[in-house]
């Protein structure tokens, strides 16, 4: 997708602009300070599976998806860092490694799905959204109904890790690299 980075930049700028509007900001309990940038980083991490649009096709498309993913990551980073004007801290800069790991995981899994079949891309998106967003809910339900903690799932959920300052990058990097490896390993389909 040639304009994937543009889509990422437009979407995140729109989110940033929306959150900066006074009624929205007050409703969310945010101010024009570090909290605005933090909200944008959470949005970036949560939206990465939706915003990345993989190219379907042969092994060569995996390389193309990788470079597109890198461009998307850089565009998202530029938007997040643009909102540093309101921030005293260096959270925008410090969260870039986590963001890179998330984009790598999205690129890897969605590229693999794109190699398998177009219908799998949507399913993978839903799975990624559940994986990134829902572990806190699973943790709560597990605690509530079986008294077992699901805090180990924190390493899978970047938003949860960011909120609790316990970032674990290796599961996301491992997932991304593994999926890219498998996507490259799948042989091209012979033309009939």
């Amino acid at each position: 997708m040639r304009f994937n980075a543009l889509i990422v930049a437009v979407c995140l700028l729109a989110v940033g602009g929306l959150v900066a509007l006074q009624p929205v900001r007050e409703a969310l309990g945010l101010a024009l300070d570090d909290s605005l940038q933090l909200a944008l980083i959470h949005a970036e991490l949560a939206m990465a599976p939706l915003l990345f649009l993989p190219v379907l096709g042969t092994r060569h498309s995996v390389l193309s998806n990788l470079t597109t993913g890198a461009a998307c990551w850089a565009a998202a980073a530029a938007v997040v860092l643009l909102f540093s004007f309101a921030s005293m801290g260096d959270l925008g800069w410090e969260s870039r490694s986590l963001s890179a790991a998330v984009w790598l995981a999205c690129v890897g899994t969605l590229s693999l799905a794109a190699r398998v079949g177009s219908s799998w891309v949507g399913r993978t998106r839903v799975a990624l959204l559940c994986l990134f967003g829902l572990p806190p809910l699973w943790h709560y339900l597990m605690l509530e109904y079986s008294g077992v903690s699901g805090a180990r799932m924190k390493s899978l959920s970047p938003n949860w890790g960011l909120a609790t300052h316990e970032l674990t990058l290796w599961p996301l990097i491992a997932l991304g690299l593994l999926c890219i490896g498998v996507a490259v390993a799948i042989p091209n389909r012979e033309r009939a």
Binding site: A5, A78, L81
Partner: peptide, 20 residues
């Protein structure tokens, strides 16, 4: 497509650095 994406990577990183 990849040369354009590499250019975007470099350009966006530059804008990010300027934003800092």
């Amino acid at each position: 497509t990849w040369p354009a994406q590499i250019l975007l990577l470099v350009g966006c990183s530059g804008i990010g650095a300027l934003a800092l």
